[in-house]
Nucleic acid binder design. Structure first.
Lengths: 331, 331
DNA sequence: CTGAAAGCGCTTACAG
DNA sequence: CTGAAAGCGCTTACAG
């Protein structure tokens, strides 16, 4: 920076003003030109650490996801990154493995890095972290994670509509004996989808659907839950899974039990994660716009940085994607 | 920091020394105790921007991948993150979409953020970026990306052994008419696997295997390439794909052409990405230890930071995973 | 073992 | 419109 100022024949304060779009108006056009030319010439890149020290802004945001390796999150993260990049921000992404302690440790580490805000895509319903962050005046956007009080902006897919459309679809095919392999109730998504399922089933007058809670949003948990359903009595004719991984587990167990999907049992997943259209049968599922979710979360956070009171909730539409894992029940 | 020093009744220089493990030996044990207690009491987190400004180290590393949404990379990134986290470093991850310009822009942006080094997991064979980085004295580790001159440490899976084991497997099953759907030749992996394929096929005395280059490591490119192979003449009895996505595309086209896999055509993928065991048929493929690759790359970079001359190459073993997409040729 | 002080590279009120 | 100067929060030679 000193070098640039020297080369342009101005004071470094002036050079700083010339290079910053927000202040370059206070400098003569000729000077701006000269400084910019000198900067380019010298290959000048500003030292963000110094800027951040001075302005108390790092142009950096922390993103917490349960596990980057879960196919849901890469599109979310890319959506976030793209929007942030366009605004000169960078994302620091960390995985929490749905472990409250690790989540807190990562949060603290990001705080130490002077992030300007957070996007929390972890789904634990307990949120001492969220409350503490609010008390400390942090800026946070919640992704797919409801809170009781509207402390922060929230962006989520329309899970209720998604589950309802799945149940509508199955009822429309003539199914009456449904089961729901619910996501874990300690996650807000697990609980919400369960509620929507129950409500929709009742609405169609479907008697006593079987509901089993999975230990996690995993294939193994799906297998275990499906096994419990089959052990409990005569199999349902249709299953709504808490997400696609659970659906995949259910598929394994159905196949092992000699039940054909969809001839014997129809199956609906949730999320439309990559490659579920390649399964056999290709999975009917509820599509959630993950990338758009990430983009919207990033935008909301940027807005929140300017308006510390902003708490609006953005709900993005979901769509039922009918493929070949659902069919009318056997006559 | 001043507050901590005040609370502990020492000068802030002393407080700084007490809090830093590297210098706490130069401070009396009692003082360290008092300072640490005060820091905890006040919930002190050091300002990394200030530290970084002073020490010229950000404890941050830039990671460039082609596309986080490609299932290969999440495990790589997690491996990197875990090792870095253990050493007090944070990863800044950016996607380049295999676009040279975007890659350069992201590189520059990360440089502006004062990263201490880079892990480049992008596979373009042209590497003006790599040479420039070396000339500028940057610290870089190359992941799955060869260079001609050993400028930096490299970590990669043993592609040659992987491809060879695939060809051995097919030859052992009795196949003689092979095809290779090669990855793009502008990627080092594409070229290397092609060479290994050719060499292995010759070694088994297999006459004139068909080789087609794909436009990218994508399903669509795999479809297109497989179509070209079928158009060119009588179908091969076995296909080695440049990666799993290409294999998936090939599978689509085989199916559409009424050819059964593996009865009519055997198929081998590369990478063993998540869920290829759920395809039908479950894909025989070469497993690459992606997470370990990421971990090793992070370790190499940390080592390189201490030793600017380090250029060793680490090759991690690959394994053929035989599933149901390969079988003996029709008699 | 500890204090006093300089300085990392910026930004930004304050003068002029 | 531009210069001179202070200061962001640390670290680290330099004294003592």
């Amino acid at each position: 920076m000193s070098d640039v100022a020297l080369a342009a024949g101005v004071h470094k304060g002036t050079a700083s003003r010339a290079l910053n779009p927000a202040t370059s108006g206070r400098v003569s056009a000729a000077t701006v030109r000269r400084v910019v030319a000198a900067a380019r010439q010298l290959g000048y890149t500003p030292n963000t650490a110094a800027r951040s020290l001075r302005t108390n802004r790092s142009f950096t945001v922390g993103v917490l996801v349960p596990d980057l390796t879960n196919p849901l999150f890469p599109p979310v993260v890319r959506g976030i990154e793209n929007v942030l990049f366009d605004h000169g921000y960078t994302a620091l992404v960390a995985s929490t493995d749905n472990d409250g302690e690790r989540e807190a440790a990562q949060f603290a580490a990001l705080l130490g890095r002077q992030v300007d805000g957070f996007i929390l895509a972890t789904g634990l319903r307990t949120h001492p972290l969220v409350e503490a962050a609010h008390a400390d005046g942090r800026h946070v956007v919640l992704l797919n994670r409801a809170t009781d009080a509207p402390l922060f902006p929230v962006v989520a897919g329309d899970d209720a509509a998604g589950v309802t459309s799945a149940v509508d679809h199955l009822a429309g095919l003539g199914h009456t004996r449904l089961a729901h392999l619910a996501g874990p109730s300690r996650m807000s998504t697990g609980l919400n989808r369960l509620r929507s399922f129950t409500f929709a089933a009742e609405h169609h007058g479907l008697a006593d659907p079987v509901v089993v809670e999975c230990a996690g949003y995993t294939v193994a948990a799906g297998e275990e839950a499906m096994r419990r359903v089959l052990d409990a009595g005569p199999p349902p004719t249709a299953v709504v899974a808490g997400n696609d991984l659970i659906a995949l587990g259910a598929l394994h167990v159905l196949r092992a039990a000699g039940l054909d999907c969809p001839a014997d049992v129809s199956l609906v997943g949730f999320n439309d994660m990559q490659f579920v259209d390649e399964l056999s049968p290709p999975l009917t599922t509820v599509r959630v716009p993950h990338r758009a979710l990430g983009e919207e979360a990033a935008r909301l956070l940027l807005d929140r940085l300017d308006d510390p009171e902003l708490t609006k909730t953005v709900v993005l539409p979901t769509t039922l994607v009918v493929r070949e894992s659902t069919a009318p029940p056997r006559a």
